[in-house]
């Protein structure tokens, strides 16, 4: 029935789509991966400085201590932790652990909570609060 297929609503307004939490955590997996990819040069450069001469190490401290870099590193910390936790969830679902709807919803929530909590704990360390 062609006239019925024409009636299908197209609902692709990103501002209006309401994803369930698992869908939200899933798109954040992509966003966090993209962010980590884009910041790879910064991370490799920091690794290089941290492993170099004492002068390089002092520069590493200075660069990593810059407020803007700290903010970026805080974002990357969350991105890594979210990508890591969500990755483990995906691997578990691949081996048929937590496939049921309720379990999958609960594990998505756990990924959000654990990655944000770890970001808070490690982020305060990064910012030099303790």
């Amino acid at each position: 029935m062609p006239e019925m297929t024409k009636q299908r609503p197209k609902f692709l307004n990103l501002a209006e789509i309401r994803l369930p939490l698992a869908g939200f955590a899933s798109i954040l997996h992509r966003v966090s991966g993209a962010g980590l990819f884009l910041m790879l040069p910064l991370l490799i450069w920091l690794l290089e400085l941290s492993l170099g001469t004492p002068e390089n190490f002092a520069q590493f401290k200075a660069v990593a201590g810059h407020p803007l870099v700290k903010l970026i590193l805080l974002g990357l910390l969350w991105a890594f932790l979210h990508h890591f936790c969500m990755g483990i969830r995906i691997l578990l679902i691949d081996v048929h652990v937590g496939v049921e709807k309720e379990q999958a919803a609960a594990s998505a929530k756990a990924v959000m909570v654990v990655s944000l909590a770890l970001t808070l704990v490690l982020g305060l360390k990064l910012l030099g609060v303790y």
């Binding site: 992509r30 991966g33 993209a34 980590l36 990819f37």
Partner: peptide, 8 residues
């Protein structure tokens, strides 16, 4: 990263 970014 290659597989992930390529998928994007």
């Amino acid at each position: 990263a290659w597989i992930g970014v390529r998928d994007i």
